[in-house]
Amino acid sequence: MNSEIILKAEGIRKYFGGVAALNDVSFEVRRNEITAIIGPNGAGKTTLINLITGIYPPTSGKIIFEGKTISRLKPFHIAYQGITRTFQNLQVFHNMTVLENVMVGLHTQTESEFLNCLLHLPKVKREERRVAEEGASLLRFFHLESKSDWLSSSLPYGEQKRLEIARALAGKPKLLLLDEPVAGLNIRETEEMAELILKIKKMGITIILVEHDMNLVMGISDKITVLNYGQKISGGTPEEVQKDPKVIQAYLGEE
């Protein structure tokens, strides 16, 4: 079954002070699939995620999301287009409670601005109630509801990872980017995370997954893109990629 293309990268290059982090990378992501991006350390995986979410613009090339070029947009514009993400090194808001973290995730779903908030108009009250309820129900989904009042920094690592996904999901994304969601988790937690990711997919959300854990990647991905030294060296279904001699070489090194 071939579903429609939701995100397309064309000839992406990114240079950092003359060093190419990505060199002419093109790939596609299909709606409601899990697309994994894999590759050895320094292959440019996180750079690619940063480009898609607008952290920095590509040196050249184009990223198209649902028919719209997004490669020059700021991160917050991209969030409004329906793309959210998690971070490899956790970026949970440590100065806020667990519930507040998720409520920030609902930013794109709400609209009260400075003046309304200062005066706490009835509209703001209604919105606040809605945000608190939606946040609480998300926390239930992620089994964090009993800790909603905790400062997020006091959560164990695995729960912070879940919280970050909950926060990203709160913005009702069409495309969710997960940067190493199971790094640092134990085997049981990793299995739970795999289930969680599949559940999110069932909700109709397209996922891009950057991950080193090959069992996870091969187990849940529909498509895989392989990067090495900033270049795409292979792509396809997990079976195709596993058989590709170039991939084997990249991972095992040359003789």
Partner: peptide, 22 residues
């Protein structure tokens, strides 16, 4: 409020805040 949370989020992590639509 929504704005207050956004401000605290900027303090917590400006990059993350930005990717959430702020």
């Amino acid at each position: 409020s929504r704005v207050g949370r956004a401000l605290k989020a900027i303090h917590g992590s400006e990059v993350a805040a930005n990717t959430l639509g702020i």
